[in-house]
């Protein structure tokens, strides 16, 4: 018994050093040498400033028009809208330190009310009929709150608006959408999707908005 206790204590120490320090630190060293960009968060720079990660979604709501109570609002003109996020909540500031889904259950009135409100915003700003069905992903909150993607259907719906606001043709916008689109892996796994940040960055490069909000402090 006492011998087992002695072994147990020593074993906790040895295994902790091996799997808790040696392993992750060695992996960090290797990763930094082999894949430095990915290992440091796939950060994207523009004009010398870090503007985000290629993997993470951002809010493209118009900061000037966000309802402080619901955190909801219309899209920034000239940009594609991403999915609703439970991480960008009023009071959280704009930070996404804590990633999260809404966790609203399927019969929760708060869920249905939020969807109704988002559907109304999307229909209005895109000039759609009052009964036009909106692709579900565009009006449901993602699991992480930083989902970078929307479905091709959710992108297509916004093409005419963005083309008009940017003063370029719909065909040009569609081409940029196609460039930001990924298919299923091996044709089987995952879903076709459009990376909203990549798309909006490409739009800024192809046809900058005048008085772009990115220039604001």
């Amino acid at each position: 018994m006492l011998r087992q206790l002695r072994i147990a204590i020593l074993m906790v120490v040895v295994i902790t050093v091996l799997t808790g320090l040696a392993y992750p630190l060695a992996m960090t060293g290797l990763a930094q040498v082999l894949f430095p960009w990915q290992a440091n968060g796939s950060l994207i720079q523009r004009d010398g400033k870090t503007i985000g990660s290629a993997l993470l979604g951002q809010s493209f709501l118009d900061p000037a028009k966000i309802d402080p109570k619901t955190g909801d609002g219309p899209t920034l003109p000239g940009y594609f809208r991403g999915r609703p996020s439970a991480a960008f909540q009023p009071g959280n500031g704009d930070d996404t330190l804590v990633s999260s889904g809404s966790n609203l259950g399927p019969t929760n009135k708060a869920l249905i009310d939020r969807v109704v409100a988002d559907v109304a915003i999307v229909r209005k700003e895109n000039g759609l009929a009052a009964d036009a069905p909106i692709p579900g992903d565009l009006v449901t909150a993602s699991a992480s709150g930083v989902d970078p993607d929307i479905s091709p259907a959710a992108a297509e719906l916004q093409v005419p608006r963005v083309a008009r606001q940017r003063g370029i043709s719909e065909a040009q916008v569609r081409q940029l959408v196609a460039q930001a689109t990924s298919g299923r892996t091996l044709g089987l796994f995952g879903e076709p999707r459009v990376n909203v940040l990549a798309l909006n960055l490409a739009l800024d490069a192809a046809a900058p908005m005048r008085g772009a909000p990115a220039a604001r402090p």
Binding site: G101, L111, A141, S142, D149, A153, L157, E191, R193
Partner: peptide
């Protein structure tokens, strides 16, 4: 939706990819 692919189904709390 209007001829473009979407995941469909209950997407609340799920990721597009």
């Amino acid at each position: 939706v209007d001829g473009s692919p979407a995941p469909g189904g209950n997407m609340e709390g799920k990721e597009t990819r």
